[in-house]
């Protein structure tokens, strides 16, 4: 399976754009406050394969590049490391992180980074469902290399246990920290979260 996530910064009417995105098969939700460079709307499509994406791409990009959209960050990816603790979770929040691992990114360093990221849910049970993927095609502000999706029961799970757990700040964050010698990830990120009202990662 493959997915496309688009984070849209709007300068026009949200309702019309929401309807247009949904009309092309996306799950669409308003991005919640507290995001960082996360846009105003988040849209997620699932595709059986790359060919299905390429067939849908022109229509989707016509909206993303059309009236009312100031900018869109996008990532198309094949599903990477996936885990489900809470099948059918539809009442929680879905968090998207676009990141660009562009600092001396040898394959060995990327592999270590990816392995450690994929272990976050093992240590942080507030992450109910997750998917960590390499990006095939990126658009927007940076050439995004990875998409890190997580579902939490509520925003408290994201803001509290996820942020406060030492596996996060005392171990993983060194990849994101210019003060650490392992620094790998561009400081510019898209951190976005939204309540879709449907199961995204366990549908």
């Amino acid at each position: 399976m493959h997915s496309l996530i688009a984070l849209l910064h709007l300068d026009g009417e949200a309702a019309r754009i929401c309807a247009a995105l949904a009309g092309l098969g996306a799950a669409v939700a308003q991005v919640m406050k507290g995001n960082f460079n996360g846009g105003d709307l988040s849209a997620i499509w699932d595709f059986e394969n790359e060919a299905a994406y390429h067939a849908a791409r022109p229509g989707i990009h016509a909206i993303l590049n059309g009236a009312g959209v100031a900018r869109a960050d996008t990532a198309f990816f094949g599903h990477g490391s996936i885990g489900v603790r809470e099948q059918g979770l539809s009442t929680g929040i879905h968090r998207t992180l676009f990141l660009c691992a562009d600092r001396a990114a040898s394959e060995a360093r990327l592999a270590q980074f990816e392995a450690e990221m994929a272990l976050m849910p093992k240590y942080i049970p507030a992450i109910r469902n997750w998917r960590f993927s390499r990006v095939i095609e990126a658009g927007g502000e940076l050439p995004w290399t990875h998409v890190w999706e997580q579902e939490f029961a509520d925003t408290a799970g994201l803001m509290g246990p996820y942020m406060l757990h030492p596996y996060h700040w005392a171990f993983i964050d060194r990849w994101f920290d210019p003060e650490c010698s392992d620094w790998l990830v561009n400081l510019r990120l898209c951190h976005s979260f939204a309540a879709y009202g449907v199961a995204i990662l366990s549908n």
Binding site: L164, P166, W169, D173, F176, D177, P178, E179, L187
Partner: peptide, 12 residues
């Protein structure tokens, strides 16, 4: 952890 994130957010 709050103090940790506080310094990180400023230095980064």
């Amino acid at each position: 952890p709050g103090g940790w994130w506080g310094q990180a957010a400023q230095s980064r």
